[in-house]
Design a protein around this nucleic acid. Structure first.
Lengths: 197, 197
DNA sequence: TCAATCGGAGACTAACAGTATTCGAATACC
DNA sequence: GGTATTCGAATACTGTTAGTCTCCGATTGA
């Protein structure tokens, strides 16, 4: 175990806190998970949290960044391995079942968004992230439609908004009633892809 | 001013509290609105709240009941006054802009759902309400489709789930970024109605 | 008229986010 | 290499909140 410099040591602390917070936020929820519990579970005190993050919201933003990076990797993997429409659809459906279907994620995103929406800085930050995701989805849709020779029944940005909204709404309802099926997502995609059997 | 019986007096207190809480929850949010502020604003003390409601969640459920009754009236009005598809669509769009578009409502529903989901009793209650709304929407869709001679591209219950999810997701994103358009909702309905242009 | 009841008041507790202060070890300077 | 400084982390503290408990006084029923 090599001796750590102050910067390295702090980075390690920060990473520990983010990892622990991620686990607890996803499992228990944002508001019910106190900073003290997170600090305890990670083996530190509240002081460690507040010298690494301005407040609880900043910690959660770091956690969400971590989650997003992970999700982006997974979805990229899922798509690159498929060529036909049907293969891509089933790859997407599998991803959706594991992610939208897994209640914790959407719940955390939504709980944080709702609780932080009164903070103008965080609200704007979240709005930007949301816009970027919608643009990314729209680009993806356009590319897929072009490649597969599909004529979309609505503008790509509207379709992207619809798809993202649907994902959020579904994930949220599943947090209340996990028996709701995720398949509606692929139903909508099929509908967008048109009557191509 | 006639002398009130004890029961009447309590009912009045309860109604005052619900009305005040409704206003404040919608304007400020659920978690940031303390019971003491609600009680104060209504001209009572916390004791009044706790002798009329088991806890904060119960008060919020009463508020949501109140809101739902109001919304149901409005949507019924909107629909009954229209005969053609286009009239109904624009009536619905108007309703959507005033309701989904008005950020407070969705935000309150979602904030409460997320915060109360750990309470098994409330969670089940919310799940039932959600199921009933989906069934109601599904019935509405079926009736409309039949009346207008439309063949739905997916089962009515899936369409209902999609529509509700879309509404929730849209309202939620609008709580973060109010520039997002509500029109996607009617886009989806047109898509469900098929190429009947 | 008087006793029982119960809606509501208000003091209290525990848990929380966030702040202020302090401690000690890694750093930088001499 | 010793000493002063810096700064990450610990800890004691504050203000606010949901929820509890006790008490008061007005309505009720006899």
């Amino acid at each position: 175990m090599p001796r750590l410099t102050r910067a390295e040591s702090q980075a390690r602390t920060r990473a520990h806190l983010v990892a622990t917070a991620k686990e607890m936020f996803l499992a228990e929820g944002y508001s019910v998970t106190s900073l003290e519990k997170v600090a305890d579970a990670a083996g530190y005190s509240k002081g460690a949290v507040y010298s690494n993050f301005r407040n609880k919201d900043e910690l959660c933003l770091a956690v969400l960044d971590d989650i997003h990076a992970e999700k982006a990797m997974k979805i990229a993997e899922a798509i690159t391995g498929a060529d036909t429409i049907d293969e891509r659809l089933s790859a997407f459906q599998k991803w959706a079942e594991e992610n939208i279907g897994n209640v914790g994620w959407t719940a955390l995103e939504v709980e944080f968004a709702i609780s932080a929406r009164r903070d103008e800085v965080v609200r704007e930050e979240l709005a930007n992230r949301d816009r970027m995701i919608r643009e990314l989805i729209a680009a993806l849709i356009t590319a897929q439609a072009e490649e597969l020779g599909i004529r979309l029944p609505m503008p790509a940005d509207a379709a992207a908004t619809a798809l993202l909204s649907l994902g959020i709404g579904l994930g949220l309802q599943r947090a209340i009633d996990p028996t709701i099926e995720v398949t509606v997502l692929t139903d909508l995609i099929r509908l967008l892809a048109g009557p191509s059997k």
